[in-house]
């Protein structure tokens, strides 16, 4: 069966952050040869907002740590970083949901770079610490626009899907609403369906996502509603 990939935002983001748990599997998926890869502008913006949030959270936290680096020593480093992190999150992100998102950004970053941070700060080499962090974040943001834009030559071709386009699928939207609680997920699924209807012709759409709770667990229902769209985890065989 012929198919094109459609990437969800967790794949676009995961393939750009080297400390993300999905990094390798997402990269494999994005780098697959001889398969047309697509996404929508809504997915692009969601990914972009998320990557910018990553930058904002990490830099603001690093700035706080480095401004207080004189308070750290080898005996208290880990506990100090931990307590700083908690107080930073509480102060900087008063909304619970946003604080949890910020924590989800910081934790894997610290898991990967915590040791380097410790060595740099304790050796008074804060600059090295910053460079390490900014290389990773900047590259993630830059690479999204290098790979993903509205042209057939793009590694991941981005398609603009407007609310007017989605209006044609009102009955499918209602059917999805009975199965999926998150409206933004529904809209992105409809984006992929619209691309199937208007762009890919006979090719099916292989909707690649790591979102188990909202999408993968409902794949049977989604595939019945959006005929021609198949839901796949990046670890699975495509179709």
């Amino acid at each position: 069966m012929n198919f094109d990939y459609f990437f969800d935002s967790n794949i676009l983001i995961g393939s750009r952050l080297s400390w993300d748990a999905q990094y390798e599997v997402a990269c494999d998926c994005v780098d697959k040869q001889q398969i047309k890869k697509r996404t929508s502008d809504n997915v692009y913006w969601e990914s972009s907002f998320k990557l910018e949030k990553v930058r904002q959270v990490i830099w603001t936290f690093l700035k706080e740590i480095l401004n207080n680096s004189f308070k750290f020593n080898p005996w208290n480093f880990d506990s100090k970083i931990h307590s700083r992190k908690l107080s930073f999150l509480k102060r900087q992100y008063p909304t619970k949901e946003i604080r949890e998102d910020a924590e989800d950004i910081l934790n894997p970053f610290l898991d990967k770079y915590g040791h380097n941070m410790r060595d740099s700060i304790l050796n008074n080499d804060e600059i090295k610490c910053c460079k390490m962090a900014e290389d990773s974040v900047n590259n993630a943001i830059s690479s999204l626009d290098v790979d993903c834009f509205a042209h057939p030559s793009a590694k991941i071709e981005m398609h603009v899907v407007t609310p007017q386009d989605i209006k044609h699928y009102a009955s499918k939207e209602r059917a999805l609403q009975k199965k999926i609680s998150d409206n933004s997920d529904i809209l992105i699924l409809l984006d992929s369906y619209h691309i199937k209807q208007t762009v890919t012709g006979n090719n099916s759409i292989c909707f690649v996502t790591t979102d188990k709770e909202h999408i993968s667990d409902n794949s049977g229902d989604i595939e019945k509603i959006l005929v021609g769209v198949r839901i796949r985890n990046p670890n699975e065989k495509p179709l």
Partner: peptide, 10 residues
């Protein structure tokens, strides 16, 4: 050109 965080910290 992108290394502004480290220049600021420097």
């Amino acid at each position: 050109s992108q290394k502004f965080l480290s220049t600021v910290m420097q």
